[in-house]
């Protein structure tokens, strides 16, 4: 069974799933304020393969963290799936992430003491799904990423590509509104990277989930439906593929 999008979603497909309005983020390093994002406003349409591109240090990861609600803006507002996340408490933000946001990290960030199956099942526990439902969904997702046979293996027994597949399954298993991926192919060789990109593209198409990437991998960027170029914390360009 392939992953698919939930049928009871409320937002229409053309309504932006992510909306940033004059968002700034400034880090204080010692006595110096370092602006990472400077007054960015953008909207990301749903069910797209969207790229935040830019050189290292341009602020794309910071922007991704802000969209993922794991960092708070210094000013401006962020609206994710119809929710102004700036109004949420820390606990509410955690619950929001658990239900609406999936993450794929550059270093995979799987929980090392859990098996591939348990890693995929973990996000479902956080949303309070029943045991049977968790089991079915996790196995279905592992099958979709081609790792059902490896479900009992722990991350240290998997290759880099397999780990990233588990991470993709973990991000998608709860049917989130958005999946954020920060340099998902940076730690993979080009061949494995290509297969992971192909997998994400296929999963995105099948699940019709919004994928937002921060990357400067040309191979990945070539698959983008929309791209936003960031430089020195400023949004330089934004384009949507026809």
């Amino acid at each position: 069974m392939s992953p698919r999008r939930e049928t009871n979603r409320t937002e229409p497909d053309d309504k932006p799933v992510v909306r940033l309005d004059s968002v700034t983020k400034t880090y204080r390093i010692g006595a110096v304020d370092v602006p990472a994002v400077r007054g960015v406003s953008l909207s990301i349409a749903p069910q797209r393969f969207t790229m935040l591109i830019g050189p290292s240090g341009s602020g794309k990861t910071t922007l991704l963290n802000l969209i993922g609600c794991i960092d708070a803006p210094t000013s401006g507002s962020i609206d994710i799936a119809g929710q102004d996340v700036a109004r949420l408490s820390d606990n509410a933000l955690s619950d929001f992430r658990a239900r609406h946001v999936g993450f794929i990290f550059q270093g995979f960030s799987l929980i090392p003491v859990l098996t591939a199956y348990e890693n995929v099942e973990y996000p479902l526990l956080l949303t309070g799904r029943a045991a049977g439902e968790r089991r079915d969904a996790a196995l279905e997702m592992l099958e979709a990423v081609g790792l059902k046979e490896q479900r009992r293996q722990r991350p240290n027994e998997l290759s880099g590509g397999q780990k990233q597949r588990v991470a993709i399954a973990r991000a998608l298993v709860k049917r989130p509104d958005i999946v954020l991926a920060d340099e998902p192919t940076a730690n993979l060789d080009s061949e494995t990277g290509a297969s992971v990109i192909a997998l994400m593209r296929r999963m995105q198409t099948e699940s019709r989930t919004t994928f937002i990437f921060a990357s400067h991998d040309a191979q990945l960027i070539s698959h983008a439906d929309a791209t936003f170029a960031i430089r020195d914390g400023l949004l330089v360009t934004g384009s949507t593929a026809p």
Binding site: D90, N91, R97, Y122
Partner: peptide, 16 residues
């Protein structure tokens, strides 16, 4: 620390 960051990002509360 990385695991703590990951689980927090996945939706685990501070109390968790």
């Amino acid at each position: 620390t990385d695991e703590i960051g990951t689980t927090r990002a996945l939706g685990v509360r501070r109390a968790g």
